[in-house]
């Protein structure tokens, strides 16, 4: 018989290296003759999309399109150290470094523009859709490309900058664990709907509803992508994957025997972005990379219990374990 059930899981995740370890990212910025710009960071885009996030931050600050930004990443001959692509830290940490750096270069451009437009303060200069000018006075504005060209080639101005950002963290006590090890924290909840076949013990995940608080989504498509990938990885962790060892030897070092989810195993995913802005993050952003995969496992395990009344306490929830638990329940053992 096939039985269905739903399950819930709530999780949290401290981002950054944590425990007082210096968590520093750096960025170099240069604005070019035609108003386009380059940002250099050591941050590697491992597929999660950090390079696009940095292009968006630069574009946002300079009133450009992300395509106008060259992002150069992860080459030790030219880029500064921006730490590991890990710990859900690149949007927050390196994003903050990029923001800090571009604002420095931007300020010099604003100062030049303020003099040109007889505006008493650089703060009155805004960047919008490829134009630079005095806020609220369209008669005092010009294409950014022309202004940078003039500033650089006629006046010898240079718009380059370097900045570093350090996340806040303190070590925990080795006696009692007290301390403020991480900042910021990301949160997420997922609900799973599963179908359990009581004859074969197989579990099909039908749907995952995922709500994640990431502070602010810099790129909605990429945030949804992180959630989809996290859910897929969570399904594998809950139901399929296990490195099997015999005396320290891996028995299944091949994808024929080490099973990861295929397109057929990945359920319908409904992702919902919760934006509770974080004051210290770039535009309020925290992070999503790791948090996206955390709730899936327990949501599935709780849904299995709701469907057939057995509690799996050892991952992965293989058909063998589910059949054994069902048989145990049949014999009158405790399901829970």
């Amino acid at each position: 018989m096939k039985k269905r059930g739903t399950g819930l899981s709530c999780t949290w995740y401290g981002t950054g290296y944590g425990n007082g370890f210096p968590d520093v990212s750096s960025a170099f910025v240069e604005i070019h003759d035609d108003g386009t710009a380059t940002v250099l960071t050591g941050a590697v885009d491992v597929g999660q999309g950090s390079s696009t996030v940095f292009a968006q931050i630069m574009a946002e600050e300079l009133g450009l399109n992300p395509e106008d930004i060259l992002v150069c990443s992860g080459d030790t001959d030219v880029t500064p150290d921006s730490g590991t692509t890990a710990a859900t830290r690149q949007t927050y940490n390196t994003g903050n470094a990029v923001l800090k750096a571009v604002r420095q270069a931007k300020l010099r451009l604003q100062e030049f523009a303020a003099r040109k437009f007889s505006c008493p303060s650089p703060e009155g200069i805004e960047f919008k859709e490829g134009m630079i000018g005095v806020r609220g006075d369209p008669s005092r504005s010009m294409p950014l490309s022309e202004l940078v060209w003039e500033a650089r080639l006629l006046h010898g101005e240079r718009f380059i900058s370097a900045a570093s950002f350090t996340a806040q963290t303190t070590p925990v006590s080795l006696e009692n664990g007290q301390g403020a090890p991480y900042w910021p924290y990301a949160f997420g909840c997922q609900a799973a709907e599963v179908e359990v076949d009581t004859e074969t013990g197989t579990v099909r995940v039908l749907k995952i509803v995922a709500a994640h608080d990431l502070g602010r989504a810099v790129n909605l498509t990429q945030a949804e992508g992180q959630i989809a990938g996290g859910v897929a990885q969570g399904v594998g962790y809950a139901l399929l994957e296990e490195v099997e060892l015999t005396e320290g030897r891996i028995k299944n070092p091949a994808f024929a025997k080490y099973l990861i989810p295929t397109a057929l195993d990945v359920p319908e995913i409904e992702s919902m972005i919760v934006e509770e802005p974080e004051d210290t993050g770039p535009y309020g952003a925290k992070g999503l990379g790791e948090p996206a995969m955390l709730p899936t496992v327990a949501a599935i395990i709780n849904a299995i219990d709701a469907a057939v009344g057995v509690r799996i306490t050892a991952l992965p929830a293989t058909p063998e374990k589910i059949l054994a638990a069902l048989a145990e329940k049949e014999r009158g053992g405790s399901g829970d």
Binding site: T52, I57, P66, E67, V71, V218, L220, Q222
Partner: peptide
Amino acid sequence: SVIGSRAVRED
């Protein structure tokens, strides 16, 4: 406007 958009991945 650029933040929160669906900007296409640079790669």
